[in-house]
Design a binder for these strands. Structure first.
Length: 499
RNA sequence: GGUUCUGUGGCCGAGUGGCUAGGCAGAGCUCUGCAAAAGCUCGUACAGCGGUUCGAAUCCGCUCGGAACCUCCA
């Protein structure tokens, strides 16, 4: 089996082969830290965390680069150029870098909650102003950019004419052609500096009120939106690297522009495989600031939002994301999230039960069942190889759950399966649930709680033995009001879960 | 308007032309002091209309919905 990924560039699933044997360079567009991350942001970072983990599982050495966009340089509502970050900083009476730091910290906190592996390098735009300026100078020198009033614009039309001949037309990633672009780009203000509507800024002149500004050969200003990714990916991953990822909404114009900038500098397509995740929607609509429908991650974890019926654990969100394919839209809903919460709990409990099985030496009694279980396990790899079909792997896991619980409850003899099958099941469930899917269950309370619960369980067992159901029910019911659920197991044993 | 997608049972969601995932919710049963948990069984869904085919949720066309992008955006 070999890994196949859907490449947005070719619109096909392709067999993945790394440019350098045994090593993978992956660049994922990171957050703009001008505000707190929301549910929508969770998707790419969880998705690419699984991609990252799976590549590691396959034995690759991965350099995973994910940037932090900490320089505001956008146009607000297509009006006058306004540094987003410095504007908000004024309102909040913070230093721009203080604000950026605050949201960077929050982002890291959220990523930690989701149990994502940190990238190998997390470069910031502000830390790479020099690299960006060097790149822009090269683009100007080659004649693909022009300077107007201290700003620098990329000449898309010239680029398209020249690079189409090299098989790299502008629009190759998003499937657009430049002519359509010229017709359909909306009328925007402050565009008179551009020679062409499709042109985009590499460097913007900063008006005096801008706090975030850097000196450049063209005067004080700040970098254009797209140049940081070209500059930083090139610095850390080279002229051509394996995977470039991000949300589908970045495909155009962001990634298209990245390709153009990098192509001018390196004459290569920048990345071999482009992977784009779909959006998280809410009531069928993309979650985004402009739609006024965002649920921040901190709100999600606490349940403190009008649309939320309860708090949701980060692992519930992670599991929810993994239950769908990364290229399908995923609709938020309380019902759906609650379903994921229960499902994950059931899966995890079965996983824990499985880990308690002791493997001995016996002859299997049910070859047919054994074969079925082996098939379900073997498909874990097969499905993930098929463009990271996490949802299908989870479905298989749920098909295994009844067998595991059946063995635990003695409905099914463990001897039905070969000892090696049990062993393999344990191993693969661990690998996929923990190592690749990055799911975990927090141990609540630690050893102290464990000791206390053992005592209470002993007391309850004694009470039950004496048919003192008043006492046994009291222990169970009062613990339940504290959020600790006692479950009676089949052989008179008891277990507990903490809500 | 242009580009690219998409429409699956109460809800969420996999689906490579035939073998009709999975989860949650719901119904019944088993186990059980009761409850919970667990196990077993059960809804035969693919927007509509045509077409291709021995056979289509899956391919093609049209119609009607919906989304993303075209402007900051994960």
């Amino acid at each position: 089996m070999s890994l196949k990924v859907y490449n947005s560039l070719t619109r096909k699933k392709e067999v993945f082969t790394s440019i350098t044997a045994g090593r993978v360079g992956m660049y994922v567009c990171g957050p703009t830290v001008s505000g707190e991350s929301h549910l929508g942001h969770a998707r790419p970072y969880v998705t690419f965390d699984v991609v990252h983990r799976y590549l590691l599982h396959l034995g690759y050495k991965v350099r995973y680069v994910r940037n932090i966009t900490d320089a505001g340089h956008f146009e607000e509502e297509g009006r006058e150029a306004e540094d987003k970050i410095s504007k908000k900083a004024l309102l909040e009476r913070l230093e721009p870098m203080e604000l950026v730091q605050k949201y960077t910290n929050m982002f890291h906190w959220a990523m930690d909650q989701f149990n994502t592996i940190p990238p190998s390098i997390e470069p910031t735009a502000t830390g790479h102003i020099v690299e960006q300026i060097v790149m822009i100078e090269k683009i100007i020198k080659d004649g693909y950019a022009y300077v107007v009033n201290g700003s620098v614009y990329f000449d898309v039309e010239k680029y398209n004419t020249d690079f189409s001949k090299l098989g790299m037309p502008y629009g190759m990633l998003s499937g657009r052609n430049l002519e359509d672009q010229l017709d359909t780009t909306r009328e925007l203000d402050n565009q008179e500096e551009k020679r062409n509507r499709a042109d985009f800024a590499l460097w913007k002149n900063a008006p005096p009120e801008h706090i975030m500004r850097w000196p450049s050969p063209w005067g004080d200003g700040f970098p254009g939106w797209h140049i940081e990714c070209s500059a930083m990916s090139n610095k850390y991953l080279g002229d051509e690297f394996d995977i470039h990822g991000g949300g589908m909404d970045l495909q155009f114009p962001h990634h298209e522009c990245e390709i153009a900038q990098s192509a001018v500098c390196n004459h290569k397509t920048m990345a071999k495989y482009w992977i784009h995740n779909n959006m998280i929607t809410i009531n069928g609509r993309k979650m985004g600031k402009s739609y006024n429908n965002v649920i921040k991650l901190s709100e999600l974890f606490t349940g403190n939002h009008p649309l939320l019926e309860q708090a949701y654990h980060p692992m519930t969100i992670r599991f929810f994301i993994l239950q769908s394919h990364y290229r399908s839209p995923l609709d938020f809903g309380n019902e759906a999230l609650k379903a994921s919460e229960k499902a994950f709990k059931r899966l995890w409990e079965a996983y824990e039960n499985l880990n308690k099985f002791e493997v001995g030496d016996w002859q299997m009694t049910d070859a047919e069942l054994d074969a079925k279980v082996n098939k379900l396990i073997a498909e874990f790899d097969e499905f993930l190889d098929d463009d990271f079909s996490t949802a299908k792997v989870i479905a298989n896991m749920f098909e295994l759950v009844p067998f595991i619980n059946g063995i635990k409850d003695k409905h099914l003899a463990i001897e039905a399966l070969q000892p090696t099958t049990i062993h393999l099941l344990k191993q693969q469930m661990k690998v996929f649930i923990e190592d690749i899917f990055g799911l975990k269950q927090d141990v609540v309370g630690g050893d102290k709680l464990k000791g206390i619960m053992e005592l209470l369980i002993t007391l309850r067992k004694d009470a039950k033995a004496k048919k003192d159901f008043v006492t046994s029910d009291r222990i169970r019911n009062e613990l339940a009001t504290l959020g600790v659920l006692i479950k009676d197991e089949k052989g008179g044993e008891m277990s507990y879960t903490v809500e």
